[in-house]
């Protein structure tokens, strides 16, 4: 199980990959909005989205786990 973590503090803007989606390394798992920028959060490895732990609009700290990939 690989955690996908927030690279910086911000708001969850979009969650493009739903639970169960098969993703390749580098695909966006989440897009954060921070410092008025859209910051894609890439999958650290290929796999299936097992769990999403945040909702759109939620505030997340740098390092927070956004999703799990298996």
């Amino acid at each position: 199980m690989t955690p996908v973590t927030a690279p910086m503090t911000g708001i969850v803007y979009q969650l493009p990959a739903a639970v169960g989606t098969t993703v390749s390394e580098g695909d966006s798992i989440a897009i954060l909005e921070s410092m008025k920028m859209h910051v894609p959060v890439p999958a650290p490895k290929a796999g299936r989205v097992k769990e999403i732990r945040v909702q759109e609009g939620e505030f997340v700290e740098e390092g927070a786990i956004l999703a799990l990939i298996e």
Partner: peptide, 10 residues
């Protein structure tokens, strides 16, 4: 590098 952390300086 805007592709990483929006290019913000840390």
């Amino acid at each position: 590098q805007p592709a990483v952390k929006g290019g913000v300086l840390f």
